[in-house]
Design a protein around this nucleic acid. Structure first.
Length: 565
DNA sequence: ATCCTGCGCGCG
DNA sequence: AAAGCGCGCGCAGGAT
């Protein structure tokens, strides 16, 4: 197999070495090289397949997206010129959806003319060099070069980790998964027919509604049947149905639950997505506006909790599961430099800390209040607690309020490391303009008002969710670096492909939660490492500011058990 | 036959 | 106890 690394990747040993080293801010040659390439998803899978692990990278596509829109690069050449090829780059899948692991190598075969036969959508080496120069210049000329450098390094580290996690996959026990399905749904039915449990529940619903031919999967039909029975429902949402007292409701809710499991993560999911003891989802780095990761294929970020028991370590190995505790309010404390909020979370559960500080009466109130503050809740228990939170934590509350006000007038907000929110689209402005005209009706005005508030809730949440995503990127980067440094381990190899078969490795990531797959003997070391990396991420984002980022960490052979350990 | 949209629900 | 942020996916049913 031929692996092309020099074109169009820009080697740090080549002509742009100074520029690349400049990105790190450390000219000392003791650090590993930072590979610069158009797209990690284009180049890294082939390198990994050849057994080569890359320590650090600069992803031009991801960096471009950040720098084009950041409020801190306004006025730089990169930000002011018209849209170009870097704006048009598609989000490249790591692999073709239906291709086996070997087919991805095709991207890296050298073509008959001696050039990479891959993908002519990818910019060539001169274009990459030019783009790198532009990006470094934009960072240098920006309002906060240090923070942007950190963000770009974190994005690229995330991109490397994401490709590696796709490469190794989530360890999956299909037998356990099948047992969960059989226990809930009954024996696996022939394709195209309903599982026994679902069929029985459907009959119960039809009987209770006196609708012998009702098709349970048709929401309009079900809604009509419910209303015909005199039930005051406007939709078939579970939370609305739960308010209703009628013999049809319990079996209907149970049916919907099972139907969801069957269609989203049933036997066909298992057959489509699990091969060789692995579920190999694709992570889409920065796939969400806020900077969170998205995923594609198999719904990797929506695995139902009840299926976590099917996530099983290989023989002799364990899963170390780490979960950042109250990540978003802690991030908000850092963002707002809110020492009182940080103190409430010092060395303990942050919501309990609020109780101890006599800010709220119960942990539940603290939690629902903070969620309301960060999401823009205006009703219920959440709104009731807000005044007390505003009094106790004025800095934090003022920050999210300011973000909301900015969004309400169509402005942009920026995360701690420099990711800036999108502007509302033309339709938003049209609706606002319409409400200002002479003949605007009450409907137009209320629509505009609702839309105004909605965009305010979006920007309010953007700063918190986006900065939390930045913390998570830094955390992942640290864990990834330190896991690799542990080196190859004695004892049984895992089923993970090289170069990770004998090395502790990241196996799964979910916004504020990480799963590491490692030899059983290493569980304690890894747990400590993951915790140290969390503290390190906190200091990278908020140097010198005393906000803690504690984790709940557990180790077990199954994901489900590790969470409770 | 194929594409698109809204709904509902899984996750954080 | 509730409906405020961000997603992906499968399905049904309408649009093409």
């Amino acid at each position: 197999m031929h692996v092309v690394v020099a074109e169009p990747a820009v080697s740090p040993d080549g002509a742009d070495a100074a520029a690349v080293v400049g990105l790190t801010g450390d000219p000392a040659a003791t650090e590993p090289p930072r590979w610069t390439w158009a797209d990690t998803n284009l180049w890294y899978p082939g390198l990994l397949a050849a057994g080569a692990r890359v320590a650090r990278a600069h992803d031009l596509r991801l960096a471009h997206r950040v720098l084009r829109t950041s409020a801190w690069t306004t006025g730089t050449a990169l930000a002011t010129r018209g849209a170009g090829p870097w704006d048009a780059l598609p989000t490249l899948p790591v692999t073709g959806r239906d291709t086996g692991p070997s087919d991805q190598h095709a991207l890296f075969e050298i073509g008959p003319d001696g050039t990479a036969g891959a993908d002519d959508r990818s910019p060539d080496a001169p274009a990459c060099r030019a783009a790198l120069r532009d990006q470094l210049a934009a960072v240098a000329a920006s309002t906060r070069p240090g923070r942007l450098r950190l963000l770009l390094a974190a994005e690229a580290a995330g991109a490397l980790a994401a490709v590696e996690m796709h490469h190794v996959g989530v360890p999956w026990d299909a037998v356990v998964h099948d047992a969960v399905l059989t226990e809930s749904l009954g024996a696996r039915p022939p394709a195209g027919t309903a599982p026994p449990r679902m069929a029985a529940l459907a009959d119960d619903v039809r009987t209770a509604l006196d609708a012998p031919n009702l098709h349970l999967d048709s929401m309009p039909d079900v809604l009509r049947a419910l209303r015909r029975t005199g039930l005051p429902v406007t939709s078939t949402r579970s939370w609305e149905l739960r308010e209703v007292d009628h013999p049809a409701i319990d079996p209907l809710l149970a049916y919907k639950k099972l139907s969801r499991l069957h269609s989203a993560n049933g036997w066909s999911w298992l057959e489509q997505w699990v091969h060789g003891h692995r579920f190999r989802p694709e992570y889409v780095v920065s796939g969400v506006v806020t900077g969170r990761w998205g995923s594609s294929g198999g719904g990797a970020l929506q695995l139902p909790r009840r299926l976590r028991t099917a996530v099983r370590a290989d023989p002799g190995w364990v899963l170390v599961v780490a979960d950042a505790a109250q990540l978003e309010p802690r991030v908000l404390a850092g963002l707002a430099r809110d020492e009182r909020m940080a103190a409430a979370g010092h060395g303990q559960d942050l919501y309990q800390g609020m109780v101890d500080a006599h800010v709220v009466d119960s942990r539940a109130h603290g939690k629902v209040g903070m969620l309301g503050a960060m999401y823009g809740g205006t009703t219920g228990a959440s709104a009731a607690v807000l005044p007390r939170l505003a009094k106790a934590f004025p800095a934090s509350l003022a920050l999210v309020e300011a973000a909301a006000r900015t969004g309400e007038v169509g402005g942009v907000v920026t995360t701690h490391l420099g990711r800036t929110s999108p502007r509302p689209g033309a339709a938003w402005h049209d609706t606002q303009a319409l409400a200002q005209t002479e003949d605007a009706g009450v409907d137009d005005e209320s629509r505009a008002r609702a839309q105004t508030r909605a965009w305010g809730r979006f920007t309010r949440n953007f700063v918190v969710q986006g900065t939390a995503a930045e913390w998570a990127l830094c955390w992942i980067a640290g864990v990834r670096r330190d896991l690799w440094a542990l080196g190859e381990q004695p004892g049984p190899a895992s089923r993970a492909p090289e170069p990770f078969a004998r090395r502790p490795h990241l196996a799964y990531f979910l916004h504020d939660e990480l799963v590491v797959h490692c030899p059983a003997a290493l569980a304690d070391d890894v747990a400590r490492l993951v915790q140290d990396a969390a503290a390190g991420a906190g200091q990278l984002l908020f140097p010198g500011f005393p906000v803690d980022f504690p984790l709940s960490v557990g180790a077990a052979t199954s994901y489900a058990d590790a969470k409770d350990a």
